[in-house]
Each structure stands twice: as structure tokens, then as C-alpha cells.
Design a protein around this nucleic acid. Structure first.
Lengths: 155, 155
DNA sequence: TATTGTTATACTCTATAACTATA
DNA sequence: TATAGTTATAGAGTATAACAATA
């Protein structure tokens, strides 16, 4: 079997579909992006029917673990800019999933709390998310998943 | 040191910044997304001054390794929809980085080739990308990087 | 009928600037 | 002056539908 070099003409298969992507495949950033896109698509799909989007679920999860948290702190924790938090919070408040209260010590700030319905929606979403992760990662053993998490957190 | 439970009120630090994110941190999908966002931002930053964007560089890299490739096949390889390839290819052709020729056997299709200037731009971008990857992954040993790549490709 | 490439369109995500009210 | 939140806006990235030319 001869080594494939770039000087050879493309086979019909390569020209139409099975392309060489050596450079991109050598990049960890490219592999991470592809994995992220794949998992994100699965994530979004698992939310179908709940009316929720990933970022909304993430906000609910942060509020659940941090009752009374400032709105801006949620954005900083999730990497969502202040300006983009406002409409997201409006959305969640209109759905009656959370409540915004004026902060006692700083009248500029808003403290955020989960509502009963928010807890219920979050619980349903968590169940779906965990089931989806299990499906998406079925090719990885528990120790491989743990190793992967550790390596990703080093980046 | 007492264990932290969610029944305790938030400390000032937690309420304002150092939030609990146990659920999200338990998700591999969340870790992958954060790593991807971080690497993508670095990638884009390393392209500053070249006028190129990640997707444009990816297209050039695929064309370089697959001279004469069909335009649609590039999109399939990169996960870019046909409809979104058209303006990207127009951009690259207007910059005189690649050339589109009618396919000899299928007059619907277009064969794509790198131009000299495209080769030069791609070379410069590759250098920057590899330097950026080296910086971004400086906390990982070579064997860790190889293990990470292997694990990501299992997803 | 199916496919290649194009155009138009829309929705999400992200980023910036300007504004208000508070501090 | 600086910060919390809001509004408006603009740029990418992504997705679908409809079309012409060709297979």
C-alpha cells in the first residue's frame, strides 16, 4: 500500500466526499469544536417539547444552586454579557420560572430566585440532559469520561 | 471544615461572583463547550490582522489538500450548509485566494483550486494557528494532548 | 426526479455603545 | 467616577425554502 501524498490526483471518492483534512484533524481546537457542536445539537434536541433552550436551563441551574444571586453574577458565571442577560431574564420571568427582587443593600441590583414552576421545569430538563449525556457518551467508559473532564479543565 | 450544602445562605462572595455550578460542572458537554469557546476565541484572535476568519481558513486548508474538490464537498467536510458556502466562496474568490472552475464531467458542479496568494495566506494562518494551539495547550503534555484527541474522537 | 449552486430570509448567539438609576 | 441593569443594534453562525441549470 503506497503512502498517500498530496501530489497524487484526487480519487473520485476524495473529490466528492471523503476529503483529506490532515491539517484540521491535527488541531485539538478543531476536534474540541466538532465535539462541542455535536453535543450542543444533542442537548438542544433533548430539550424539544419543553420550550427551553440550553442557556435558559443553565440560568435556572445556577439560580437553583445560588438562591438570591445577582443577575449579573449569573451572566459572569455563564459567560453571557450583561446586555444579553436582560432579555433572557425577561423570558424566564414571563414564563413564571423565576422571580426578580430588588437587592436589599444595593438598589441597582436584582436578586434572583427560582419559583416552584421553575424548579419543576429544571428538574425535567436535568433528567433529559443526563439521559442525553449518557447516550452521547456511551462509547466512553466512566474512567475515560473522568479523564476527559480532567483534561478539558486544563485548557 | 463543614461541608457546604445548598440549605446554607449564600456568602457575599458566592452571591456576587464565586457561584456554585455543581450541576453544570458535572456535565461533560458543558466542559467541552467552555473549552471550545476558549479555543475559538484564541483562534479568532490569532487571525487578527490577516482579515481571515476561522471558517475561511478551514476552507483554504481543505482546498489545499484536495485540489479540484467540489464546492459542496468542502461544505460537507466542514459542516457548512450549501446555502452558506456560496457567500464564503464569493468572499475567497474576490480576495483572489482561490479559483472556481466548471467541473469537466458535471456542469452543475464547481471545482475549486488554491491560487498562489491563497497558498501564501494559508501558510501564514497555519503558522499563527499552530503557535496559538501551542500557547493554549501549554498546560497539557504531548501525551495528554494525544489522549484528549483520542477521547474527543470517541464522542 | 434528484442534485449543484444560488438567493433570500430568519433565528440564535455574541459584542458594543448609549442610557438610567443608583453607589 | 464606577457599577447594575436596560435598550438598541450589528455581526457572525446556522437553518430552511425556493429557484435555475443540469444530471
Amino acid at each position: 500500500m503506497a503512502a498517500v501524498t498530496f501530489d497524487e490526483p484526487l480519487t473520485e471518492d476524495q473529490r466528492k466526499g471523503g476529503l483529506r483534512t490532515r491539517f484540521l484533524e491535527s488541531l485539538l481546537g478543531y476536534a474540541v469544536r466538532r465535539a462541542s457542536n455535536s453535543l450542543s445539537a444533542d442537548f438542544a434536541k433533548s430539550m424539544e417539547g419543553t420550550g427551553m433552550r440550553p442557556v435558559l436551563v443553565s440560568i435556572l441551574a445556577v439560580v437553583e444552586e445560588n438562591p438570591g444571586v445577582n443577575q449579573g453574577a449569573i451572566g459572569r458565571a455563564l459567560g453571557v454579557a450583561r446586555a444579553n442577560m436582560a432579555p433572557l431574564m425577561n423570558d424566564l420571568e414571563e414564563r413564571k420560572l423565576l422571580r426578580r427582587m430588588p437587592d436589599k443593600n444595593d438598589r441597582r441590583a436584582v436578586s434572583v430566585y427560582l419559583r416552584k414552576e421553575g424548579e419543576a421545569v429544571l428538574k425535567e430538563c436535568k433528567t433529559r440532559i443526563l439521559a442525553q449525556e449518557k447516550r452521547a457518551l456511551k462509547n466512553l467508559t466512566a474512567s475515560e469520561q473522568s479523564a476527559l473532564l480532567k483534561l478539558l479543565n486544563k485548557i
